Amino acid sequence: MPSPRMVLFAVLGTVVYLGLAVLGWGGFGAFFAHPARTALVVITVGLTVASLFSGGNISPGEREDRGNRWVLAVFTVLGLLGAYLPAWTDRMELWTLDGDTVRWLGVAVFIVGGVLRLWPVFVLGRRFSGLVAIQPGHTLVTDGIYGVIRNPSYVGLLAGALGWALAFRSGIGVLLALLNLVPLVARIRAEERLLADQFGAEYEAYRARTWRLVPGLY
Score class of each variant (00 low, 15 high):
F53H: 08
D65L: 11
D65H: 12
R69A: 12
W70V: 04
V74F: 06
F75I: 08
F75E: 03
T76H: 13
L81I: 09
G82L: 11
G82N: 11
A83K: 00
A87S: 09
A87M: 08
W88H: 14
T89D: 00
D90G: 11
R91K: 14
M92C: 14
M92P: 05
L94C: 11
L94T: 15
L94P: 06
L94V: 15
T96Y: 00
V107R: 02
V107W: 05
F110W: 12
F110P: 00
V112L: 14
V112P: 01
G113N: 00
G113W: 01
G114Q: 02
L116P: 01
L124Q: 08
S129M: 04
A133K: 04
A133W: 01
I134P: 02
P136N: 05
P136R: 07
P136Y: 05
G137W: 01
T139S: 14
T139P: 06
V141Q: 14
Y146C: 07
I149A: 04
R150W: 08
S153G: 15
Y154L: 15
Y154T: 12
G156P: 07
G156H: 04
L158H: 09
A159D: 03
G163C: 00
W164P: 00
L166V: 07
L175W: 13
L176P: 05
A177E: 01
A177M: 02
L178H: 05
L181I: 12
L181V: 09
L181S: 09
L184C: 11
A190S: 13
